[in-house]
C-alpha cells in the first residue's frame, strides 16, 4: 500500500517535471533576450534611424513599419470579424451554410503563414497592382488574423445570457435593436480581447510580409500606404542571417528581438488581464 503511494507520488512528480522543463526553456529564452537586449535599449535605439545597413543607429523605421502594418490589418479584420461573429451567433440557423462558414474559418486558421504570403503576392501585389506596399501587407495580415477575431468574438457573444435578448424582444424591440443595445455592450470587451491577440500575432509574423511589403533596408519613414516599409520581425531576420557582419551586430539583434518580444508580450498580457477582469466583473 505504502509502496503504491510512493510510485504514485513519483509519477506525479515526473509529469510535473515534464511540464516545468517546457516552462524553463521558454523562461530561459525570454530571460536571455531580456538580459542581452537591455544594454542596447536606449532612446537613440528606439527613435533613431539605422546606419551602415543596420549595424549602427536605431530601429525607428522598423517600429513605425510594424505599427503601420498592424493598424492597417486590424482596421480591416476587426469590423469584418466582429460582423461575421454577430451573424454566426445571432442570425445563422444551424445548417449547411453555417457549417461551410465554420469550415472556412478553421481552414483559414490552419493556412500556413507563408501560403498567406504567396496569396498576398498573387492577389494584392500583382493582380491588383498594389506592389510591395503597406496596403498589400496589411490586407494579407488582416486575412491571417481574421479567424482569431471571429472565434473570440463569437465566444464573447455567446457568453451574454439568452434572457437579456428575450427580455428585450418581449418588450417589442426589433432583433437588431436588441443586439445593438442589449448584447453588444456586454460582449465588446471580450471582442476587443480577441483583437488584441490578433494584433500580437500580426506584429510578430514574418513570412507573410516577406513577400508582400517588407524592405530589406530602408532608412526612412513611409509617406503613403503604397510605400514599402521595414518591419521589426523581418529586420531581426535580416540582421541575424543576411547581414555581412552578423556576429558583430549581435547587440543590435538582441535589441531588436527584445523590442519585438516586449511588444508582443505586452499585447498578449493585456489581453489576458482584460479577459480575466471581464469574466470576474460581470456576474449574471
Amino acid at each position: 500500500m505504502r509502496n503504491k503511494k510512493v510510485t504514485e507520488y513519483f509519477l506525479i512528480s515526473l509529469i510535473r517535471l515534464v511540464t516545468y522543463i517546457v516552462v524553463a526553456i521558454v523562461g530561459y529564452i525570454i530571460i536571455d533576450i531580456f538580459i542581452k537586449g537591455l544594454p542596447t535599449l536606449s532612446w537613440e535605439f528606439i527613435s533613431g534611424f539605422p546606419r551602415r545597413s543596420g549595424a549602427e543607429g536605431g530601429i525607428l523605421p522598423a517600429i513605425v513599419g510594424t505599427i503601420c502594418l498592424v493598424t492597417g490589418a486590424i482596421s480591416v479584420a476587426l469590423p469584418l470579424g466582429m460582423t461575421s461573429a454577430i451573424y454566426l451567433t445571432e442570425y445563422a440557423k444551424q445548417g449547411r451554410f453555417k457549417e461551410i462558414i465554420g469550415l472556412a474559418i478553421s481552414t483559414l486558421a490552419g493556412v500556413p503563414s507563408i501560403v498567406f504570403g504567396l496569396f498576398g503576392l498573387g492577389l494584392f501585389v500583382l493582380f491588383f497592382g498594389f506592389g510591395a506596399s503597406i496596403l498589400s501587407g496589411s490586407l494579407t495580415l488582416a486575412f491571417m488574423i481574421l479567424p482569431t477575431i471571429i472565434v473570440s468574438s463569437e465566444e464573447a457573444l455567446r457568453a451574454v445570457p439568452v434572457t437579456l435578448r428575450e427580455g428585450s424582444l418581449a418588450l417589442g424591440a426589433s432583433k437588431w435593436q436588441t443586439i445593438a443595445r442589449n448584447v453588444l455592450p456586454y460582449a465588446l470587451p471580450g471582442m476587443f480581447t480577441g483583437s488584441i491577440l490578433g494584433i500580437g500575432r500580426a506584429a510578430g509574423e514574418t513570412a507573410p510580409i516577406l513577400l508582400t511589403v517588407a524592405a530589406f533596408y530602408l532608412p526612412k519613414l513611409p509617406r503613403s500606404i503604397f510605400d514599402q516599409v521595414m518591419a521589426l520581425p523581418y529586420h531581426l531576420y535580416v540582421l541575424a542571417t543576411q547581414h555581412p557582419e552578423a556576429e558583430k551586430v549581435l547587440p543590435m539583434q538582441y535589441g531588436t528581438a527584445l523590442v519585438l518580444l516586449l511588444l508582443v508580450i505586452l499585447f498578449n498580457l493585456s489581453a489576458i488581464i482584460l479577459r480575466n477582469r471581464f469574466r470576474k466583473k460581470i456576474q449574471w
Partner: peptide
C-alpha cells in the same frame, strides 16, 4: 501556468528562430 502557455504561444517565430541560431 495557463497564461504562461498563452504567452508562449504568442512568442514570434522569428524570435524562436533567433534563439535557435544563437
Amino acid at each position: 501556468l495557463k497564461p504562461f502557455i498563452e504567452i508562449m504561444a504568442g512568442i514570434p517565430s522569428v524570435v524562436i528562430g533567433f534563439f535557435g541560431l544563437i
